Amino acid sequence: MMLPNQVKEKANSVALMIFDVDGVLTDGTLVYGPSGEEVKHFNVKDGVGIKLLQTYGVHVAIISAKESEPLKKRIIDLGIKYSYLACKDKLAALDELLVKLKLDYTQVAYCGDDVIDLKVMTKIGFAIAPNDAYFMVKEAAHYVTSSLGGKGVAREVADVILSSRMDLKDAYIKAMLPEFEEKK
């Protein structure tokens, strides 16, 4: 994966990768089951990317304005340690997490798709938007994925970050090991 130097530098400094959910890890469609329960569609390839980031020492967090049982399950399945759900102030959540992890804004990457994400995206070191993000978000991003929300955005982001540090073929060797699929 060939990256422009500025993107590579920003990706290489990431110690914390934060994902919004709806429109990033999902396509943003809201689906309700027959009893009114919310259904979410997640991309399995994104899960591999998120787990690889964690395997190589990058903290991963979820900050979402919404909360749902499917999202809670996905967070558990991927071993994500930091999540802020039903979050009304994403910047306050980020600030709390930075204190906890002893990091600063320059070490943070954030992937968001709508205007609620701009407050965070304009503060951090590496702002990322899915290809189908709202135009103002794409304008604020340092990197716009070729992937659409829910269609491999997190995997592409993981590849960008990991390829700034190593050959991707080497990075994926760990994903081929049986223990990679074990829950942590």
Rank of each mutant, 00 (worst) to 15 (best):
E156P: 00
K123E: 15
Y134R: 11
V48W: 12
D113K: 00
D132Y: 06
E9L: 13
E69H: 10
M176Y: 04
T26P: 07
N12K: 15
M166L: 10
M176F: 06
E179A: 11
D132M: 04
K90E: 08
E69A: 14
I128C: 03
L16C: 05
F180V: 09
K40D: 07
D117W: 08
D132V: 04
A109D: 03
D89C: 00
C111P: 11
V144S: 13
D22Q: 09
L177T: 13
T26G: 08
E67G: 14
D77V: 01
M136K: 14
L3N: 01
A171Q: 04
E38H: 00
Q107Y: 09
I63H: 06
A65Q: 13
P70E: 06
I173R: 12
L53K: 08
M166T: 02
G125A: 06
A15K: 15
L78K: 04
G149S: 04
L91Q: 02
L52S: 03
S163F: 09
G28P: 05
Y143W: 07
S164H: 05
Y134M: 12
Y110K: 03
L78F: 06
M176Q: 12
D20Y: 10
V60L: 02
K66V: 09
Y56G: 05
I18Q: 10
T106S: 15
L30M: 14
D167L: 09
D159Q: 13
C87H: 08
D117P: 09
S68E: 06
I128S: 00
L118V: 05
K51R: 15
A109W: 01
M1I: 10
K81C: 07
